[in-house]
């Protein structure tokens, strides 16, 4: 009786999960084995899309994975430091710090991108300041329209997604655990590496995953601050628009998703290895 009623309780969330996650994925999976020719969808199963992906897009995909991994690592580290300060160092400011993090979520995606354009451009805030200070004599043109600009912008955008899960898991660490570690002879670094990081494993992996997936799927930031940069999202998006090749887009998405799963799994493994006692 009881177990049956429990099933009913999870039914709505299971339904939502299926409708919002499983069904579209399944649709994409099926779609990726079809083909489009002259606006006509051919449902003849084919591996042509996957062959195309591995033959022509592996380089961009690899670059995207590298950018996403770098951004996710940096953002996770930054999010960790931020959370650490809020949880252990500036406890009385924790609420304010988190409020600021949340507020930046409301800032909007494009606004942040344009803010960084304003900061990093040839006549931008940074160059103007450096010129005025006499540090440089002509603008550093590589600030904007570069991979670094993409990474910085995406870090700014995704930082809240890294801070929130890490801070949440740090909240689960009792002060007495940290004090016990100190008491048993642990200095700053051992406390961090043997207690805090292992205790935040799930938060750290969640943060990394969020950021990786945000970056891996992004196609607006590279367009606007990347200059000539192309990431896989820039090639996937047109498949669903201008190029009208949903099957190829689906195949690209699924390969990228697989790559993301692998990278995230590897990162998880790394964190777990680190945390092993």
């Amino acid at each position: 009786m009881e177990s049956r009623s429990n099933y009913w309780l999870v039914a709505p969330s299971a339904l939502i999960f299926c409708a919002l996650f499983i069904a579209p994925m399944a649709f994409f999976a099926v779609l990726s084995f079809w083909q489009v020719e002259y606006f006509e969808l051919s449902t003849e199963p084919t591996l042509a899309n996957y062959r195309d992906v591995f033959a022509n897009y592996w380089r961009v995909m690899g670059f995207t994975v590298v950018v996403a991994t770098a951004t996710a690592l940096l953002t996770t580290a930054l999010g960790f430091v931020f959370s650490f300060l809020a949880r252990f160092r500036a406890v009385e400011w924790a609420q304010a710090l988190l409020f600021i993090v949340l507020i930046t979520l409301f800032g909007g995606y494009l606004m942040k991108i344009y803010a960084w354009k304003t900061i990093l451009g040839n006549e931008g805030v940074l160059n103007s300041a450096l010129l005025a200070l006499g540090v440089i004599s002509s603008p550093i043109t590589s600030l904007l329209y570069s991979p670094q600009a993409v990474v910085v912008t995406l870090m700014h955008f995704s930082l809240p997604f890294a801070v929130l899960p890490i801070y949440a898991s740090m909240r689960g660490i009792a002060d007495s655990e940290v004090e016990a570690a100190r008491d048993l002879g642990a200095g700053r670094w051992p406390i961090l590496s043997t207690v805090i990081v292992p205790r935040c494993q799930s938060g750290i992996v969640a943060a990394f995953s969020f950021v990786f997936l945000i970056v891996g799927g992004d196609y607006v930031t590279p367009l606007l601050v990347g200059g000539k940069l192309t990431m896989i999202g820039n090639l996937i998006a047109p498949q669903f628009g201008a190029q009208f090749n949903w099957p190829l887009g689906a195949a690209m998405s699924i390969v990228m998703l697989a790559a993301a799963v692998i990278v995230i799994y590897l990162f998880r493994l790394l964190v777990a290895l680190w945390s092993r006692q």
């Binding site: 009792a174 007495s176 655990e177 940290v178 004090e179 016990a180 570690a181 100190r182 008491d183 048993l184 002879g185 642990a186 200095g187 207690v195 292992p198 205790r199 494993q201 945390s275 006692q277």
Partner: peptide, 17 residues
């Protein structure tokens, strides 16, 4: 960490991991 004392904390402070 350097004192020749050790403490049993009220909440014990055991490492759950």
């Amino acid at each position: 960490e350097k004192r020749p004392t050790n403490t049993v904390f009220q909440g014990y402070g055991l490492f759950p991991h």
